[in-house]
Every structure is written in C-alpha cells, then in structure tokens.
Design a protein around this nucleic acid. Structure first.
Lengths: 214, 214, 214, 214
DNA sequence: AATGAATGAGAATTCATTCAT
DNA sequence: CATGAATGAATTCTCATTCAT
C-alpha cells in the first residue's frame, strides 16, 4: 500500500541536452512495442535510452511505473488538448467529433505508442487497476460531460447513460486503434476510420423527433 | 523455434470424471482470467486443476501452449455458438443483440469464455500476433458478416464499413466488460449495460428513410 | 507483516540419503562463520550444501530465515536438554551449573556454530527482534525460574531480580563464548571457563547468613 | 587490501558550527543504531548529517571507515573516562561500580551510542576481527587490571581469572543493555539494573574470610 | 500416467562510489 | 570544498521445466 507516486525526478537537464525522463519514456515505447511489456528487459530500455540501468530508477519507481507513466503522460496530453477543443467547439456533435479525431489522431505517426497503449497496457494486473486511475476516469468524465450537456440541451437522446456511452466510445476507438496497429495500414486509414466512427457514434446517440428504433 | 505442436495427449478420459486436459484448461481459464497470463504461475494452474505441476507438461508443451490451446479450443466454440445463434435469429437486429449478450457473458455457462475474450486476448503480444489474431479476425468477421447482410437487405445503412462497425462493437463491449470487472457491480448491471449498448449500437447503424444525420 | 513462518519442508529424505534441510543449515553455519552473514552469498551456501540455489528456498523463506533457523534450532535443543537436566538435578546450585555447562558445552567442538550464534546473530535488525523471540524468552525464563525457585527455598538471595540474573548469565556466557571464538583456544579452555564462571555466578547469588556485602 | 588509512580530513571546523566530520559521525551513530550497519544506506547518513552523499567520501574512505571511526573515537573516549574514574576511586569495589555505571550510564544520555557499541560491534566480522578487537581488548584489559589489583590487595578472591571476570562483566552488561534497548524502559530501569548487577557482581568476586561456597 | 522435489538460468532492483560541475 | 546525478556491478529470489521415482 502507501505507494509514494511520482518520483522527485532529479532536476532534469543537468549534464545532458535532453530531458532524461523523456528519453527513457521514448525508449520504453520503442522496446515495449517491439517485444511487449513482459519480454522487455529493463536493461534494454536503458540501452535504448543510452543511460545506465540504475538511472531508470531515478525517474521511475519500477518497470511497471514506466509503462504507467507512458499511459498517464498521453492521457494527460489528451485531456489538455480536449479541454481546449471542446470549449472552442460550438455544438455537441462538433465536440464529440473532436474527441474522436483527437484520440485516434494522437496515434497518427506514432504506431509504436499506439501499440503500447492498446496492447501492452493490459499485460499486468497492476496496470489494469491503473486503467481505472483518476486520470483515466477524468478522461472518461470529460466525454461523459459533453454527452450529458447534449442531453440537457436536447440534442442527445436521454435514455442512455453518459458514462456508458463514454466507455463505449473509448472502447470502440481503442478497438479500432488496436486493429490498425495489428493490421498495418497507413495513417490515412486511421483518419477514415475516425470519420466513419464519428458518423456511427453520432447516429447512435442523437435525439430523434418521434421515432422508435425498434 | 522447432515447435512440435500437438502433444500426444494421453488417451483422454481415463478413470477420473472429465479428462485431465479439459480440467487443466478450465483451471487455466479461471486463473488466467483472475491474474492475467504473466502473473499466473504454472503451479497455480496445477493446484486449481488438482493435478501435480509436472502433469501439465504431459498435456501441454509449455505455459504458452496452455494459453494457445484455450484460444484454439474455446474461441472456436464461442464462434460456433455465435454461428448457431445468428442463424437462428430472424432479423439482423436480433442477431446483433445475441452477439452482444454472448460477448458480455450473459449466456449462462459462457461467462468464462467471455472473460477469456475480454481479458486474456491482449496478454501476450506474441500470441496476439501469431495465434489469436487469425481467430480474432474470424470472430470479427462473423460480426461483420451479420452487418453486411443487414446492409444487403437494406436494414443497415451502407455508408459504413462492416469491419469498422464490428471492431467498434467489440471494442465498446470490451470496454464495458472491463469496467464492469473492475467496478464490481452485480450481473444485473451488466445486463442493463448490454441493453443500453444494443440500443445505442442499433441506432447508430440502422438505415433510416430520408434522414440526414448531419 | 503476516509472515507465514515455517516452510512446509518438502517431505525430506526423498532422493538423497541425508535430510536436505539439515545439510543446508550445516553448510550455512560453515560459511556464515567464515564470512559473516552479510558477506555470505546464498549461492555459497548452496554450493557448500551441494544443492541448487533454488533449493534453499524450498526449505527456508529467505536468507534471514536460514540464520534464524540456526538460532532457533539450537535454542530448541538447549531448552529440551535443560528441561531434562534441571529436573534431574537435586539442588539449585547444581541446576545452574548444568545450565552453564550446557550452554557453553553446546559449542564445544562446534566453534563455527558458536561464532554464528554469538557474532552473526546480531547482524540483522530483523534477527535482533527475533532475539526477543518467544523461544529465546522461553530460554531466559527457564533460567529465571530456577533462580526464583532457589529464592523461594532460601538458597538464593532474594534482593535481585531473577530476570536480570538470567540475562546477566546469558550475556556473560555469550561474552565468554565470543571471546573464545575470537581467541582460538582449545575446547578445554571453554570447560575451564565454564567452571570458573559457575563459581563466580553462584557466589554472586547465593544467600548468606548474616552478612553485609557493602 | 592496499588500505590507505586516515583521510586528509579537510581542515576541520571551517565556517559551520561543528566540523563536518563530527556531524557525520554523530549522524552515523544515530542511523546505525536505528537500522544497523548493513541496513543503513550511506545516503541516510548524509541526509541525517545534512550533507551531500559525496561529502562523506571527503572525510571517510568508505562506509566501513565510518563505523571504524566511531569505534576509534568513542571507545577511546570511554577508555579515557574509565581510566580517570578508576584512578580517582579509593577501593576496588568502588572502581568496579564505576565501570558498571559508566558502561551502562554512558548510554543513559546516549542510548544510540550504546546501541552502536553493543549491537553494531558485532555487525561486521571483518571489523570485529580487525579493528574493534584490539580496542576492545584494551577495554577488557582495563577491567581485568582493576580486578587483578583487587586480588593483589586481597579484596578479590584469587581463584578466578581476571580476564574471565572482565569478559563476564562486559557480557552481562551488554546483555542487560541489549535487553533494555529492545525493551524500551526508561533510564531509571537501567540505573536500577546497574545497581543490582553491581551488587551481584561484587558478591560473586569478593574475597571472603573462612568460607566455602560449595 | 502422475508426481513434486530439484534445478538453475534469468531479471529486477539496490546502493556504494565517482566525478563533472 | 561541496554537490548529487549517474553509474553498473552485484545479489537475491522466482518459477518454468525436468526427471527419478
């Protein structure tokens, strides 16, 4: 228990040009994507990052923490980006399209990152719990809030739980990203998929006049 | 390398009730689902199965082989079950609802299969790429086929890729199942979620007369 | 916390003649005595015992547990032996002489054991706590009881705490053993020391008629 | 090997209050007492002393050297103190009481030093044999000398070896101190114990007119 | 066929020590 | 003199797999 999260992180940029923490994360993404989390040796990350094995432990609690940090860092970026975009967008539909584009767009040109996030993240039960981390929940909450607002203004059907719809969106996009990762199509495929998914998703939740879907 | 697949498999069903191979597989599903593939010790499987550690190696080449065998045996059964259900159902909508219920493990006795699909699928990248992927594609293909048939008969809109919609469904359900697993609500929660998801999904793909979703 | 003490100990004597647990303990005494607890590698113990590294962990929880077990095993022997001897002895004086002889006598011909018990035992704080272990207290209690009985029957002065006198005896004998260990005299030296110590000890605690020690 | 003893010791007492070497030693006593020599990290000493890790190495060759220095510095002080006290005391009995009080009393205001002396002394067999032993012998010799003088003047029975009696005293007091350390009673407990032990000890060695202890 | 004690390769992590600043 | 980030050798312990019984 009593996990002291967040390593103090030696005030970076001391001897070398780039931020060491960042270098390690980038190296980890590379090797995790290649061999998977469990098959990756800490020494491989160190080698790829050009640091000593022990240095990793100056910036991360342990190997798990490296993977978690990759996830957290990206989710953090997603959240920041989305908070800006959703406040700029005029309508609920636009907001949701933004979210979809951004979540998939983050992976464009970073297939390795996509693989780590979609595949490796579930390889440890510890990480699985992290999956329900505050940060991840914040992200889901952000989506759910947009949906709830849509329901309030009457543009989104209100017989479905916003949380469930948020989860469904995350899962759907995650599945698409996984498939793209395994499949090996170009970035354009991902962009097309994003468009179609947005189409499908909006149709699924939009409020309709007098209609019975059954 | 030099993989000599298929163990001789001691002429099953000797004197104990179910044959041992089956008992081991069942035990493995149970513990894999609980702790994940990597965190599961071979000795745990043995204990759960009520056999000695060494016995596992009479039926399986190694630990990996146990997981692979689960996919070979079980997912195939899951696919068969789905094929039967989808052929029995009258309409596309009913077929899709069946799939949703099956994947979420709502058919009694099939919960373990659901867990294998949602939890274990991503646990070994090697596996994912080598063995699981083809099978997984078969599973996705089955969903896609149902959707394509819907498009052919005009009940499903035809401007969206069936494959993409299949992936979206799988991902969405996977997310919901994972959330449910971590959250700890009762089975009724899952059933409600299934209903809502089906509602949402069908709305998202159903063909509509003269309508513009934009 | 929740330390599950006592390893199940694979029902010994399977493949080899001698009890493996015993062999490991004997080997550990040897190498601990030579290099000290911390400087001793687990692999050295294994090598000396002629077993694989991992085998150690079938019989002991960890390296600490090996040292603790040495201590516990010997104290247990001491207690058993002493309980017999003290019930056989006629007088309190004889009982105390027995204790002294036995505690030092246990080391006769086992200089290495003496070194481990007197020197190495304090090398780990975990062990230090063990020092206040039930077993050790039982041993001290046994000595204290003999003294208290002497006080009750009037042969031992009753203005001194039996516990303190017990501790003083243990410490004194431990100190003598340590010195003998470091010094390097023969076993006869230890026997002479035992006799003199008994002499001194008894004089220190015997009840005297009308006398003032001040 | 190739031990270059004695670090240059930066010209002490620069601008900060006490000189740094002393601060480090004091800090080391504190943490050694708490965790033991091996479990203490150099960085902990540094932190406690309020200096950087590297600074330790400006004043001491290595971690071992810190422990050795504690003994060199402190035990020497203990010996000096005892030499003064024993020359001031009038009778042998008083001298021995002084020693007992000092050995236990020294610790009264310096429980931590007590722990280092009693507990840590045995933590490094290398240390014990190399450095501590000569000094320790000097300390024992001091006690033995007092006893021998008592024997010469006829106040102490002369059928017991002064060295043995010295060892017995040290061991007995060490045991009492250890017990007190682990037990956690107040300083008064220690003072009472000292009194009782002195009582017992003197009774054990005092020369008696025509008496037979058997 | 079944067992489970024994194996030993393998890997994460720690921490004393160094040295560029 | 002082710092503390970086190093990387060193070590415990785990656990898949084997094989004598």
């Amino acid at each position: 228990m009593a996990e002291k999260r967040e390593k103090p992180a030696p005030k970076s940029r001391s001897r070398d040009g780039g931020d060491k923490r960042e270098r390690i994360l980038r190296a980890a993404i590379k090797v995790f994507a290649k061999h998977g989390f469990y098959a990756t040796r800490v020494s491989e990350i160190a080698k790829e990052a050009g640091v000593a094995d022990g240095t990793i432990y100056l910036y991360f609690k342990n190997k798990d923490d490296v993977l978690i940090s990759i996830f957290d860092d990206r989710i953090r970026k997603l959240i920041e980006l989305l908070e800006r975009l959703t406040s700029e967008a005029k309508t609920t539909e636009e907001r949701l399209r933004s979210i979809i584009e951004v979540q998939l767009g983050l992976f464009e040109g970073e297939r390795e990152l996509a693989e780590v996030v979609t595949v490796n993240l579930r390889q440890s039960s510890k990480l699985l719990k992290q999956y329900a981390s505050p940060l991840f929940n914040e992200y889901l909450g952000l989506i759910a809030r947009v949906i709830a607002e849509g329901q309030a203004e009457g543009t989104v059907r209100d017989d479905l739980s916003p949380r469930l719809l948020a989860r469904a969106m995350w899962g759907g996009l995650d599945g698409i990203a996984l498939n793209w990762t395994l499949g090996g199509g170009g970035p354009e495929k991902l962009r097309i998929a994003a468009k179609q998914y947005a189409e499908f998703y909006w149709s699924g939740i939009v409020a309709r006049a007098a209609e019975n879907t059954h």
